[in-house]
Design a protein around this nucleic acid. Sequence first.
DNA 1: AAGTAATCCTGATCGC
DNA 2: TGCGATCAGGATTACT
Length: 327
Amino acid sequence: MPELPEVEVVRAGLEPAVTGALVTSVTVFDERSLRRHTGPGEDFVDRLEGRTVLSAERRGKFLWLPLGAQARSAGSGQAHSTGTGQARSTGSGQAHSTGSGQATGAEALVVHLGMSGQVLLRDRATDDRLTRIRLDLEHPAHGPLRLNFVDQRIFGSMAIDAMLATPDAAVGLVPSQVAHIARDPLDPLFDDRLFLARLARRNTGVKRALLDQTLLSGVGNIYADEALWAARIHYDQPTSTLSRARAKLLLAEVRLVLAKALGEGGTSFDAQYVNVNGASGYFSHSLNAYGQQGKPCPRCGRPIVRESFMNRGSHFCPFCQRVRLPV
DNA sequence: AAGTAATCCTGATCGC
DNA sequence: TGCGATCAGGATTACT
């Protein structure tokens, strides 16, 4: 499951390769991979071909490529891209998108890997099985390039989305689909105090809170279990009963595990997650709790347990991680 | 209104 | 060898 470290590895791999590249041709093999795009496949293709990729950005598990203004006719050697990036300001549409954030006319290609998505950089001759969307690119310095969006379970998606100026200025623009997501804990502008205050006000279990992308983004099932194990907190401990000290410890452990996994290139099981070159990460060798049911807890030696929770698995040490109610 | 459950998806793997 | 059942869970939608 690609979470923050895996998505960041993809972003970092993409950035030097695609920045400045022109999208020359787009092929949609399966429109279900456009579930987050408003409009049919042809619209996606029309709005992407002829655009230039400006950079590669990320927040939490969302990845996006800001796009330059659209050339008048794709394929022709446009002299001036008579920039009409404007115009498509969604009319009134986004009453729901976030409640905050202002349309700017700028757009981005938003990528979410979902459960099994991969972005693979190839030469023009290479195809990958289960490719749902293919972008052919032309980079002024590096030449032709192919970007295959591969996704077995089709929980991931690509979309052209409007960039909004959020009140949360400083960073500038985020796609409308990302505007309601909180910053991730590796973001230098992540607000610890705000997070701790909101966490304390929640009336739910702590793992539910960790997985809530509007509270903090980038954490999924693997790193939630790992951070909770490291902090010795039970996944269903009510957030309102966590002391501030333990909440701060948890946040610190979240940061640690995300940073460590990032340093090791992410977590790979089989070929479910790979970097843009198709290589696996090594963090699966460092897991203490996730997927370790039946194996001894690296801390106390008692077996790790897996319980069903939120339609997924929760892995923890029943001895080290017990619900502690305040006295 | 906040919190929770349901929903979407299919290739790989397992058991018989 | 074949085939059906099972499994994985992020984000959105739909309820209560």
